Simulated assay, not measured.
Amino acid sequence: MFTVTESVHIDRPVNEVFDFFTEGRARWDESVISEELTSPPPVGVGSTMHTRMRAVGREVDFDWRVTAYEPGARMAVTSTSGIMATSSDLQFADANGATVVAVRIDAEPTGIMRLAEPMIADSIRSTLATSLARAKRMLESA
């Protein structure tokens, strides 16, 4: 099992940043090809979604369940299917009118993928850092 953490400071109000990040990762996460809510709106604890993404050099599907949802403060999801057990926790904090976004991803490769765990963790870390920088550019240029 490994954990990846990254954060970014975005010069936009916390509620605006929270909405941007939680309305779908396809907007800001460069690894996401598509994402759709698979339960009735609105999003909240227990909601489910399906994501098609690029991971480990190929396109893969994940299903997720929302495990925490606090508007303006936090959203967490846990995979219910996919190539490895994964959870993601996004936390949002006001920073004098700007926002600090902190993301934690926990993943547990199994089988042969365990041998590649360090490379998988580095790839996720790099993609996350790039995606957070992309979100920052998108939000601050709006």
Rank of each mutant, 00 (worst) to 15 (best):
Y69T: 05
A85Q: 06
V66Q: 12
V43T: 10
M138K: 11
S131V: 09
K136D: 09
S34H: 09
I10E: 00
S81E: 14
S31Q: 14
A26Q: 12
E30D: 15
F21E: 02
L37E: 08
A116G: 04
E35K: 04
P109G: 05
R65P: 04
H50T: 14
S31C: 11
F2V: 06
P118K: 04
M1I: 08
L90M: 15
S81F: 08
R52A: 07
G97F: 13
Q91F: 04
A116M: 10
R65H: 09
P109L: 03
M113C: 03
A116N: 01
V14H: 02
D29R: 00
E16F: 03
D63Q: 07
V66K: 13
R27L: 14
S141V: 01
T86I: 02
E36T: 11
T86A: 06
G46C: 07
G111W: 03
S141A: 09
G82C: 03
R104Y: 03
A98I: 13
L128I: 06
P118T: 08
T80F: 03
G44R: 12
D19A: 13
F20A: 01
S34W: 01
A135E: 02
R114M: 09
E140Q: 03
R114E: 09
F20D: 07
V14S: 05
D63F: 02
P40L: 12
K136L: 04
R52C: 07
A107H: 11
I124E: 01
P40W: 03
P109H: 11
T51A: 10
V77T: 02
P118V: 07
T51F: 07
A133Y: 05
G57D: 08
V56P: 00
T110R: 08
D106N: 15
T99L: 13
V8Q: 13
V45I: 14
G82D: 09
V100R: 13
E36G: 06
G44K: 14
P42Y: 15
S88A: 12
E30Q: 15
F18W: 12
V60Q: 07
M75K: 02
E6N: 15
F2A: 10
V14D: 07
D29V: 00
G46I: 05
V66A: 11
A93W: 04
E35G: 06
F18Q: 10
L139V: 07
T5R: 15
F20R: 04
W28G: 04
W28Y: 08
E23K: 13
P40Y: 07
R74L: 04
G111V: 03
D94V: 06
S79Y: 02
P41D: 08
N15H: 15
A102C: 10
D19C: 08
I120Q: 01
F20M: 05
E59C: 01
G57S: 06
A107N: 02
P71H: 09
A102F: 06
E6K: 15
E30T: 15
N96V: 11
A76W: 08
I112G: 09
I10Y: 01
M138W: 06
A95T: 03
S34T: 15
R65L: 04
R58V: 00
